[in-house]
Design a protein around this nucleic acid. Structure first.
Lengths: 180, 180
DNA sequence: GTCTATAGGCAGATAGAC
DNA sequence: GTCTATCTGCCTATAGAC
């Protein structure tokens, strides 16, 4: 659906609230009123965007599983954040930004947006567990790794400086190399 | 100024855009139109709030300097985030949230909001330097520590779970104990 | 200086022609 | 199914009484 793709891009660049239906429709090259033929409300459109994103994340994590060793999976995971440093410096983390926005709106949107974090944390926890970490420590490691990457994305965005992001991914890779 | 205090609280809880002038005025128990006697525009009010916050941060950092050893200063720094775990789980990090919002609005607001991060990073960098870190590593350590705390605040807020925050602060304290 | 009423503009949502 | 015109409501900002 072109509308979902357009909305996805605008939500990342401008946030949920500043992305007007008219903007999204223009970006998708469809008439403004037409949006309501496909989605009853703006919230429904947001839900569709989040569902699509979460599906992408699940597919990405499944793809990382083709890498045999958990350590290399984690390093590849971090590598994806490094690869997208420029995008993160320009527009922030898509997942973190959406969660932030959704947290403010509250309700069903917030819990659906949080779903992306849940997918990531559960997957990361499994990798740390496969590296021999105790259950509690595996989850703590997962939270720590994601917190570093999200925090670095926020700082990189605030300073419009991708090197902040690369700094942190390098640090995390070192940590993972010596983990366990 | 009562208006600035009220605005500060609402900006933290609801974000910049969702905090209407009327809301702020009600919170401060002054008539809505009155706000424009003190501030020409909403942006000017936001600037006043940010200036006040940054002054508080500068004062806090100066206060931490009374602690003699840099390691204990850093541990106290992290301890302040631990102490405010519940607040962070409920409303997110005030600094991070404001920066996120201001980044989206762009312009003068974004750079002023970023000023809080600059204060924190410069101070942290000095402490790591005092612990014997090379200049580059001191700054990297500062960015890493702040990224962890900001990322943990975002995750704690998304899951409405303060233990995520406490988990990360405990981890950071361990790291600082063995640093250098 | 303090307050009320309201102008002006924009965004979400709808009605109804085609 | 597709599109235009418009309603409704909210928010910033102002005008002007007191």
């Amino acid at each position: 659906m072109r509308l979902i793709v357009a909305a996805n891009r605008l939500f990342h660049r401008q946030g949920l609230e500043r992305s007007a239906i008219a903007d999204i429709a223009r970006e998708a090259a469809v008439p403004a009123g037409n949006v309501y033929y496909y989605f009853k409300t703006k919230e429904e459109l947001v839900e569709a965007v989040i569902a699509r994103r979460n599906a992408f994340i699940a597919a990405w994590l499944a793809d990382l599983e083709t890498e045999a060793a958990p350590r290399e999976r984690l390093i590849r995971f971090v590598g994806e954040f490094e690869r997208t440093s420029d995008m993160r410096a320009r527009h922030g983390c898509p997942v973190g930004g959406l969660c932030h926005d959704a947290n403010r709106l509250g309700g069903a949107l917030a819990s659906q947006a949080r779903g992306a974090f849940e997918l990531l944390i559960d997957w990361l926890r499994d990798q740390f567990a496969a590296l021999g970490a105790e259950p509690g420590e595996a989850r703590a490691g997962a939270l720590h790794l994601l917190a570093c990457l999200e925090g670095a994305s926020l700082l990189a965005h605030s300073f419009a400086d991708p090197s902040v992001m690369r700094n942190e991914t390098a640090r995390l890779k070192d940590w993972l190399e010596g983990y366990g």
